[in-house]
Nucleic acid binder design. Structure first.
Lengths: 139, 139
DNA sequence: GTTTTTAATTATAATTATTATAATTTTGTA
DNA sequence: TACAAAATTATAATAATTATAATTAAAAAC
């Protein structure tokens, strides 16, 4: 079974004209659930596609985001990260190893009184600290 | 009553050596609860302190953050914002008017199973959408 | 109350992520 | 095959932040 074929259909289904680069970029984000930055995506894909331009990565990610097939994570101020999981979920960043972990949370249990008549379009919950791995290694 | 005197004491209490620039920077963030960017802080204060350098603003904000007397808000990827309210609270950014609103939320009601043994140091909840003002104006 | 030392501030240059622009290539279609 | 439209690429520009070194101010020592 060829995953690229499925991505091709998936993109068309979401009103994104498919192309080789677009398939590969989506494939990378969806397969490596590592919340990559633009640079990571570019550095990895340029190995397979030597002519790849970073502009294509920027344009494609912008397009994917507009079509809501990826999520933009601004957990760090100096770089954007991307996630193919568009379901609302939290992100934990370990200050030690730098890794980002997903976690589920019950969004409906949080009560917002001040903004209860505001139109909510996007929710991002970021937590920073030390992951259990780094914590135990420190002892 | 002179607020600057109080800030002077407040900084010392938090292990920050006081200076004219540092007092003015803290005063600006604490008085204008507008979640200012570095540029906003600089542009406003340079009117009072013509010799002020943007580096001082950067350095001072970094120091304040290390001493936990201000909070860094990375709700937008291309610029950092600052808040003298260090209590955990959420930030809502309106896509229309660009304003950032504070809101309280019950942090303890959110259950994190995946990261329940992680050491949490900082929590940021960002919501983006349309505020009620912009929403009613649109009709 | 000078002198000495340390730290804070400032000016300038460098870095880095992102955006803008225009040229080239690819893709779809008549 | 030829044409038109869109995607990709290369290059340059922008803007936020960081690095470095010089200057100024504050604190400590004599």
């Amino acid at each position: 079974m060829n995953l690229s074929v499925n991505i091709n259909d998936f993109l068309k289904l979401n009103e994104v004209k498919s192309s080789f680069q677009r398939i590969k970029i989506y494939e990378y984000i969806a397969e490596n659930k590592n919340h990559p930055t633009v640079n990571t995506i570019f550095d990895e894909l340029v190995k397979q596609i030597p002519t790849l331009s970073k502009m294509t990565v920027y344009n494609t990610l912008k397009l994917f985001r507009e079509k809501n097939i990826i999520q933009e994570i601004s957990i760090e101020d100096n770089e954007l990260r991307y996630d193919a999981n568009v379901k609302t979920h939290g992100h934990f960043k370990c200050r030690k190893c730098g890794e980002i972990f997903d976690f589920e949370y019950n969004n409906s249990e949080i009560v917002f009184t001040e903004i209860n008549n505001y139109k909510i379009e996007e929710t991002q919950l970021f937590i920073k600290g030390i992951c259990s791995n780094c914590f135990t290694m420190n002892k």
